[in-house]
Simulated assay, not measured.
Amino acid sequence: MRIFSDRLLDSLNKGLKHSYLLFGNEPLFVQESRQLITQQAKAQGFEEVHRFTIDNTLDWNDVFDCCQALSLFAQRQVIELLVPDSGINATISRSLAELQPLLHDDILLIISGSKLTRAQESAKWFKGFLNNGVHVSCATPDVQRLPQWVMQRCRKLNLKADGEAIQLLSQWHEGNLFALSQSLEKLSLLYPDGTLTLVRVQQALSRHNHFTAFHWIDALLAGKPNRAQRILRQLEAEGIEVIILLRTLQKELSQLIQMRHALGSMSIQQVFDKYRIWQSKKVLYNSALSRLDAQRLRGAMRQLTKTEILAKTQYDVSAWPLIQQLTIELCTTDNSLSFSS
């Protein structure tokens, strides 16, 4: 059975299945779906939870042993498997296929990861789990569907938002549903009557959303020009020192240049391991490395150096327009672009 994440609760209320496959590009939906399933499972006596990350260090025998640890006093168990960003290869597929026949009524399996390809959804292991399981689609709403999602979220929090407020919330967070969800929770506390107008939302977002240089860097890595420029405008308005931004960006560009060079002899996962990239940051770095070749990275570093010299020597000339230009050029997908001299 296949459902969207917003239909998961209805499905759970009809009874638990042996397995749940949570796949999609929206981390909030994956996280909330996992929480819903484990809460429902706990209410039905699944007391033990075993979590495994599928990587090179995983001993699959540990996973298989959880399914086979049967006794009169054994507790019902939840097994969670986190699929790596690199996806499911042939070795992982074989192990998952071996796991499927070991499931029974005292085991509930949750497999979560990023969006699957059509080929992966046609694989033997995937079809095997769907025989008595549920595939929960955790895709990010597109621009047209996002306001509808915001409206549904407001209803859950007993918020009454008008059309302009919903539109502003959708545009302000630019697809970051974690941040959007947190903003709605803050708004529910800020306005106990639950009424959200455009003016109220504008005032609240301006007051509560304070960005740092690291938010700007994340937007640059992700290639989101509108968000990056909005953060930059707020940082300028708050009076952050230009040199702090330039130093932060210099560190990231230096690492990206090194990572780009390393990709000549290593896989992307090996590069991430070598530079100890956090799991939550891998998507951002993957986006930057896919978008920016070595020539553009070196050009950005040269432009950054010139901007720093200007900031330190020409006190009557603002460096902010150059940083804005650098922001746009780092976010663009046009590899033929050459940084200004």
Results as ranks from 00 to 15, higher is better:
Ser267Pro: 05
Lys274Glu: 04
Lys282Cys: 03
Leu284Cys: 07
Gln269Trp: 14
Asp273Thr: 14
Ala288Ile: 03
Trp278His: 08
Leu253His: 07
Leu292Lys: 14
Asn286Met: 08
Tyr275Asn: 14
Lys274Pro: 07
Ile257Trp: 11
Trp278Gly: 01
Arg276Gln: 06
Trp278Phe: 10
Arg260Lys: 11
Lys282Phe: 05
Gln269Met: 13
Ala288Pro: 01
Ser267Asn: 05
Gln250Asn: 04
Leu263Ile: 04
Leu292Ile: 07
Gln258Ile: 08
Gln279Glu: 00
Tyr275Gln: 12
Gln255Tyr: 15
Ser265Asp: 06
Trp278Ile: 07
Gln255Lys: 15
Met259Tyr: 11
Lys274Asp: 01
Met259Asp: 03
Arg291Gly: 02
Lys281Phe: 06
Met266Pro: 08
His261Asp: 05
Met259Arg: 03
Ser267Leu: 04
His261Pro: 08
Val271Ser: 13
Val283Ala: 11
Arg276Glu: 00
Arg291His: 05
Lys274Ile: 01
Ser290Gly: 03
Val283Pro: 06
Ser265Phe: 11
Trp278Ala: 04
Gln270Glu: 05
Val283Gly: 06
Leu289Gly: 03
Arg260Ser: 02
Met259Glu: 01
Ile268Ala: 15
Arg291Gln: 02
Leu263Cys: 07
Ile268Leu: 15
Ser290Glu: 08
Leu253Val: 00
Ser254Trp: 04
Ile268Met: 13
Ser280His: 10
Ser265Leu: 09
Val283Thr: 10
Leu284Gly: 00
Ser254Cys: 11
Ala288Arg: 13
Ala288Leu: 00
Ile257Lys: 12
Ser280Lys: 15
Lys251Trp: 03
Asn286Gly: 14
Gln255Pro: 11
Val283Gln: 09
Ile257Thr: 05
Ser290Gln: 13
Ser280Thr: 04
Ile277Val: 02
Gln270Tyr: 10
Leu263Val: 00
Ser280Ile: 01
Ser287Phe: 10
Phe272Arg: 14
Gln269Cys: 12
Ser280Leu: 03
Gln269Ser: 14
Glu252His: 13
Leu284Arg: 07
Arg260Pro: 04
Trp278Ser: 04
Lys281Trp: 08
Lys251His: 08
Gln255Leu: 12
Tyr275Glu: 05
Gln255Trp: 13
Met266Trp: 09
Gln258Tyr: 13
Asp273Lys: 14
Val271Gln: 10
Gln250Ala: 01
Phe272Ser: 02
Asn286Leu: 07
Glu252Gly: 11
Ser290Tyr: 03
Gln255Asp: 07
Ser267Phe: 15
Arg276Ser: 02
Tyr275Cys: 10
Glu252Ile: 07
Tyr275Lys: 15
Ala262Ile: 02
Ser290Ala: 11
Val271Asp: 03
Gln258Ala: 05
Leu284Lys: 04
Ala288Phe: 10
Asp273Leu: 14
Leu289Ser: 04
Lys282Thr: 06
Lys281Asp: 04
Tyr275Asp: 09
Ile257Asn: 00
Lys251Glu: 03
Leu253Tyr: 12
Glu252Trp: 12
Ser254His: 12
His261Tyr: 15
Ala288Gln: 08
Val283Asn: 12
Gln279Ala: 01
Ser254Phe: 08
Ser290Lys: 15
Gln270Lys: 15
Val271Arg: 14
Lys282Tyr: 05
Arg291Cys: 07
Val283Phe: 15
Trp278Tyr: 02
Trp278Lys: 05
Met266Ala: 14
Ala288Tyr: 10
Asp273Cys: 12
Gln279Pro: 06
Phe272Thr: 02
Ile268Asp: 09
Leu289Lys: 09
Lys274Met: 05
Lys251Leu: 00
Gln250His: 09
Leu263Met: 06
Gln279Phe: 01
Ser267Val: 09
Arg291Pro: 01
Arg276Asp: 07
Lys274Gly: 06
